[in-house]
């Protein structure tokens, strides 16, 4: 399926809403790589990508029948992904308060070869300096979401999105050092 074809996407989402497993599978296959990229940008850890993606897509399947406008599926899915990642980061922060794990126990470096590009390393380092909300903003822009869609996903105004995006880009530029 070509997700850019909105009529085909709406049809696919409707079939998935009726419980058609083939359609649900097609949706997962169509979006798994994009959602994985979003999750990686948000968490900065490739070892949690699959677990979080699984959580996101299970939530998607369970909540799909509550989606009123199938044309808004992509925005809805990325809102789900953003909220799941922010919940995960919040849980991680809480765990750090209650469990005596030092940072080095949680932030295990990627195995050699997993990250093989200087530019990618620099991007990950720069993203790690940003707040999760700003990371989400930049990752949503990379996903091709418009300002209006992002404002809907974040529950804020378009003007606020533009201002925050400007600040986030400036910060990313400051910290990006390949």
């Amino acid at each position: 399926m070509d997700p850019s074809s909105s009529a085909a996407l709406v049809d696919l989402v409707r079939r998935a809403q009726r419980g058609d497993e083939a359609a649900q599978r097609e949706l997962i296959v169509a979006y798994q790589h994009r959602v994985a990229g979003f999750v990686f940008a948000m968490t900065n850890r490739s070892d949690v990508v699959e677990d979080l993606c699984q959580q996101i897509f299970i939530k998607m399947i369970r909540a799909l029948d509550r989606l009123q406008a199938p044309a808004q599926f992509e925005s809805w899915l990325f809102r789900l992904a953003r909220n799941t990642c922010i919940d995960q980061l919040r849980r991680q922060r809480l765990r750090r308060i209650f469990l005596p794990f030092a940072d080095e126990h949680e932030n295990i470096p990627e195995p050699p070869g997993a990250v093989d590009s200087e530019e990618l390393d620099a991007l990950r380092h720069a993203l790690a300096q940003l707040r999760p909300q700003d990371r989400a903003l930049l990752a949503l822009v990379q996903e091709g979401r418009s300002h209006a869609e992002i404002s809907e996903i974040l529950g804020t105004s378009v003007a606020a999105v533009k201002a925050r995006l400007h600040r986030a880009r400036e910060q990313l530029r400051e910290h990006y050092q390949p």
Binding site: R25, I28, Q32, H33, F40, V49, E50, C53, E119
Partner: peptide, 24 residues
């Protein structure tokens, strides 16, 4: 760099991901 990030993330999903999600 963003494309590379997407590729690394996509590579971290093991084959059969969709089937595992449906089963779960």
């Amino acid at each position: 760099a963003w494309q590379r990030l997407g590729c690394v993330a996509a590579d971290s999903l093991r084959p059969g991901f969709a089937e595992r999600v449906i089963a779960a």
